[in-house]
Amino acid sequence: MPPLLEVDSLAVTLPGPTGPLPILHDVSFTVGEGEMVGIAGESGCGKSLTAQTLLGLLPAGAKVTGSARFAGTELLSLDTRRWQKVRGAGIAMVFQDPTAALHPMLTVGRQLTEHMRVHLGLDRRAADRRAVELLDQVRIPDPQRAVRAYPHQFSGGMRQRAAIAIALAARPRLLIADEPTTALDVTVQAGILALLDQLRAETGLAVAFITHDLGVLSALTTRGYVFYAGRVVETGPTGALLTAPRHPYTAALLGARPHGTQAVGTLRPIPGGPPAPGQAPPGCPFQPRCGYAEPSCGTVPPPLSPAGTDRSVACVVRPHLEVAA
């Protein structure tokens, strides 16, 4: 059976003030039914943009190539009406910043029920009942009253949970959670993660979990994708990624040396910053910051190539490292 979501060679170019800006290059990944997959990378590497592409919400003038198949349907060629069927009911999204993503002048209940009624065909009563259930499910106290509240009356953690409830309302098959825990403190983060995992286990919900913090992925996701400058630079089972990173960038993110012999936790900041869109050097985009760079890194961006069981790495020096390990 093919995976629920299959993204293949996705490339996105946005219009910029001085010309087109290539943002995503050759991005491929899959999310299986009932699977939780992690997507990690520094700020600005294109994680949110990937999510927006999968919902057809790119800004006007964006150019997209490649393919993204969801449950057998090619998303990238959908018309507006079909997109509306997929959004919310097929793929739902939890936005990065819950405060900004909730309408300040509509009650939480209204924001929970409006798409439920469109997608599930529920009448008002049934939708209201389900709204209360959902808020209860995400552990918002006194859900009967919470449905009538406006977002500004919630605390940050509650807003985030309300946003998750809204995303789940129309029973999507895939949830894209864009850094749903960034604004929250550690205990709340853990709760949200547990909630997502439970939903996955109970309802078969597939989750693409976006984060800039590799550590968050550890317990819950089966596989992880590491993004850098609009490319996937490493992928593999989460455990292996975290304990034995092969790409120098993944390793640097973890504060460890490649091949993961050193303890995670000696976090050192990576010198420099990721290149701005369109400013990447000709070869490997990580080259200016990479401690393992060789002359051969500077010609073409290394493609993602298999490296061991279920793993792939986009680094030309990787074979040497493996030998070293």
Binding site: Q52, L55, L57, W83, Q84, K85, V86, R87, G88, A89, A92, M93, F95, A101, L102, H103, E114, H115, V118, H119, A163, I166, A170
Partner: peptide, 9 residues
């Protein structure tokens, strides 16, 4: 954007 993402017309 969130409203569009919910599949609202």
């Amino acid at each position: 954007r969130a409203a569009y993402a919910k599949g609202l017309p």
